[in-house]
Amino acid sequence: MISDGTLALDPLVVGVILAMTVVTVLTKVGGFWLLRRIEVSERLEAGLSVLPGAIVIAILGPELAAGGPAEWGAAGIVVLVMWRTENILLALCGGIGAVVLFRALG
């Protein structure tokens, strides 16, 4: 048994990973599978199409509300860089740099 935390595979952990895999695979193929069997109206499609963005906002809202000025400022930097450059990597670096800087200042 290797116990240095590099190659260890705990049976329970592997079990949880497999369970996460199963539910994730079900979500990935489930919507497509279901759609081939039921008719989806344009109205419902319009509702479904806002979901990804809305879920992103639903994750962000409480997270930013729990943060402080450093996180809000850094969030603004991410928006600005992303809006101007459309480069995720650049936006991430800008945001992380900004949060480290603002926290050090604060």
């Binding site: 979500t27 990935k28 489930g30 497509f32 759609l35 479904l48 990804p52 879920i55």
Partner: peptide
């Protein structure tokens, strides 16, 4: 959300 994305 993946199920909706897959459906799309």
């Amino acid at each position: 959300r993946y199920s909706l994305m897959g459906a799309a």
